[in-house]
Design a protein around this nucleic acid. Structure first.
Length: 570
RNA sequence: CGGGCUGUGGCGCAGCUUGGUAGCGCGCGUGCUUUGGGAGCACGAGGCCGCCGGUUCGAAUCCGGCCAGCCCGACCA
């Protein structure tokens, strides 16, 4: 490609509204342009990168037996109503009606429709099956952010596995785990698999692939000793040890005028440090007021509550609901003596005594509370957020918490969708059985963003060869010197003929502009052809990754560049 | 959904406090000079000042409403 003919609208300045590296560099390098919040056009360079990411995904899916299809992006409501998700996905899904006033939606994922196709399977002999497509999803995210990291419209590779039994599902799940690891390795991102929450997908087991990055939106818990790794939405840890001081007898009420927070209570009384308080949260779960208890120095991870209770129908209670049920306002709440409400407590409170909690009378608290003696806990459920330094659940070593980008997610779905939509096969005994399903997703644009986040410097993007929009650029130092132009054109032709995707920078620009642009858009290898070097028959090869430069006889340059690139293609 | 910030040529910004000709840098076009790290000079093109309404003789500027974008947070009692 001739740069003079290419549409590569690079910008000299960073766009003002861009914070994260991928946003800043992809816009500045002319890869993408924003249409609206969370909605991006891929320009020629961006499309080339996305296509390469897709090719790698396809190759790895095909390698484990995947068959590519293409399903529609507009779905009728009916199958979504049958699986119960028509209501579950309220808010994130765009719903509308066609001219006949039939309910429809824009696909946020494709479990329902792939399962409908799977109803055509009739015998266990046809299983296993593995189907996938690369298709647009539209999710009306409440807050798109971070350039291509969280968007509303995006291309996703989603695959779906169909098996006659759980062990078949396990095998396909493992195949995906390996395929995904290969994909991320080829993309040049360091993704670690972690235990995760299944969210709206349902199902029991899921693994996320996470790339450590400050731009990420998730925190993962990692144990440096034994390798345990999990999203904080799911991670469990041991209870950090606390030494309670002895207390004889019943809890004792005391005055706490104007005190509404754990911090304020801790400041006012030296026996009420946060770790010795019981934090009492009021939630409405399935329409019923429920108390959630945690050690005062811990935080609730709402997703664990959702997962642990098996319902999305939870929300913090409003003040008036709390007052009506407990007779006190938030800030003076407690569960001692509460029998008419469901009480859920984090296991970190087990065996704790001489604790401080609200008395359910405004401006009054209780001290000397023995959790198991004084509180009627209906359910012990691990709902607290794992913190840096908490003991690892597997080995007890202090865990780390790292900000990360979720680049892939694989789920064991079980038979939920098959049951709802009637996808069954007959087994070898002639009996009808529901199909066991898994679903597996990788967002294309988010992976492009993750690559940029983890591979850039102050000059611009550093693409791995495998996904670079072009593998090499021939920089013509001056277009005014006929010998220079002729030599550059010759090298360009050689590289093209050797199958190297090459740009020739034949613009009437000064060399500094060409160097800066080549670095900004991140081309892995640059061949610089100018009169200075040509005087001794030489040109330069510069590697983007580390700036390493060597002079090479112009007759040998193509061969050297080809060898370097082929070795890095993956 | 709550909070903060921001909307002025393609990009980055000033002007707004104190109402009166819309400005700067980059980029773009033409010409000359220059040519191994974002050149210089000269001339030139390009703006519904986010939108609607109000105040005023007069609004980018003051007032009200709306829309859009970015960042933080996700009710933690």
């Amino acid at each position: 490609m001739r740069w003079s003919r290419a549409f590569i609208p690079t910008l000299r300045d960073d766009p003002a509204d861009a914070e994260s590296a991928n946003h800043r560099l992809l816009v500045r390098g002319g890869f993408v342009r924003r249409l609206m919040a969370g909605s991006w056009s891929l320009l020629p360079l961006g499309k080339r990168v996305a296509t390469k990411v897709e090719r790698i995904i396809r190759e790895e899916m095909d390698r484990i037996g995947g068959q590519e299809m293409l399903l529609p992006v507009v779905h009728p409501a009916d199958p979504w109503k049958k699986t119960g998700r028509w209501d579950d996905v309220e808010g994130i899904v765009v719903k509308f009606q066609d001219r006949k006033e039939s309910d429809m939606l824009l696909a946020i994922t494709h479990e329902e429709i792939f399962t409908l196709i799977a109803t055509e399977l009739s015998s266990y002999r046809q299983l296993p099956q593995l189907w996938y497509h690369l298709q647009t999803k539209f999710r009306d995210e409440p807050r798109p952010r971070g350039g291509l990291l969280r968007v509303r419209e995006f291309t996703m590779k989603d695959s779906y596995s169909f098996d006659v039994d759980p062990s078949g599902l396990d095998a396909q799940f493992e195949a995906h785990r390996e395929a995904y690891s290969r994909i991320f390795e080829r993309l040049g991102v360091e993704a670690i698999p972690v235990h995760a929450s299944s969210g709206t997908m349902g199902g029991k087991e899921s693994v996320e692939f996470m790339v450590e990055s400050e731009a990420g939106e998730d925190d993962i818990v990692v144990c440096p000793n034994c390798g345990y790794a999990a999203n904080t939405e799911r991670a469990t840890s041991g209870a950090p040890p606390v030494e309670d001081e002895p207390w004889e007898g019943e809890p004792e009420e005391f005055d706490t005028p104007g005190i509404r927070t754990i911090a304020a209570l801790a400041d006012a009384f030296d026996f009420a440090s946060p770790e010795r308080q019981i934090k009492t949260l009021a939630y409405v779960v399935g329409g019923e007021l429920t108390l959630i208890l945690l050690p005062g120095d811990h935080e609730l991870m709402e997703q664990k509550l959702i997962d642990g209770l098996g319902t999305f129908d939870i929300r913090p209670a409003h003040d008036d609901e709390i007052v009506a049920a407990l007779g006190a306002h938030p800030g003076s709440l407690g569960a001692v003596g509460v029998r008419h409400l469901r009480v859920i407590a984090d296991p970190a409170l087990r065996g704790r005594f001489n604790m401080v909690t609200g008395a359910n009378r405004d401006d009054r608290h209780l001290r000397g509370v023995d959790v198991e003696r004084d509180i009627a806990v209906d359910q012990w459920l691990g709902v607290r957020l794992t913190r840096l330094g908490d003991p690892c659940i597997e080995c007890g070593s202090p865990v780390q918490v790292r900000r990360s980008i979720e680049v892939g997610h694989i789920f064991k779905l079980g038979t939920k969708y098959a049951e709802a939509l009637g996808a069954t096969v007959v087994d070898e005994h002639g009996e009808e059985r529901e199909i066991w399903m898994g679903s597996y997703g990788i967002g294309v644009g988010r992976n492009v963003a993750a690559i940029v986040e983890s591979s850039h410097d102050d000059k611009g993007i550093v693409w791995p060869v495998a996904v670079a929009p072009y593998e090499a650029v021939v920089t013509v130092v001056t277009m005014e010197d006929a010998a220079t132009v002729a030599a550059a054109e010759g090298i360009y032709r050689e590289l093209e003929e050797a199958g190297i995707e090459t740009l020739i920078d034949d613009r009437a620009e000064r060399p500094g502009v060409k160097f800066a642009d080549a670095e900004l858009i991140g081309i892995p290898y640059r061949v610089t052809v100018g009169p200075k070097g040509l005087a001794s028959g030489e040109v330069e090869i510069t590697r983007r990754r580390d700036g390493f430069t060597e002079s090479v006889a112009s007759g040998q340059v193509a061969e050297k560049v080809v060898a370097a690139i082929v070795a890095e293609r993956r």
